[in-house]
């Protein structure tokens, strides 16, 4: 899957889970500081990415990812290993 496609789908999932405007999400956006993610929502974000891309992510490593761009790279690595 192309980086651009992954990025678009990641942004769509974030907009759904966090209830933010998709237009406002950039690669540099930080989940907590910029997108207002509450700590309780981190598990739901991880589960939503897993559901969208049909992958399993290691929870502790996934929760270390702080920005949208890093999340796209993280998911891309999982898709390549699939």
């Amino acid at each position: 899957m192309e980086y651009k496609e992954i990025e678009a789908r990641v942004k769509k999932v974030i907009a759904e889970v966090l209830g933010v405007d998709e237009e406002k999400i950039t690669s540099e956006s930080r989940f907590v500081e910029d997108l207002g993610a509450e700590s309780v929502q981190s598990l739901e974000l991880v589960a939503a990415f897993e559901d969208e891309f049909d992958i399993e992510m290691e929870e502790d490593a996934a929760l270390q990812v702080k920005t949208v761009g890093k999340a796209v790279e993280f998911i891309q690595r999982h898709l390549q290993e699939k």
């Binding site: 759904e16 889970v17 598990l43 739901e44 589960a47 939503a48 897993e50 559901d51």
Partner: peptide
């Protein structure tokens, strides 16, 4: 929690 069922299914495995 207003999330998709697929998301709920995954999260409930924890």
């Amino acid at each position: 929690r207003k999330v998709k069922k697929g998301v709920a299914e995954r999260i409930l495995k924890k």
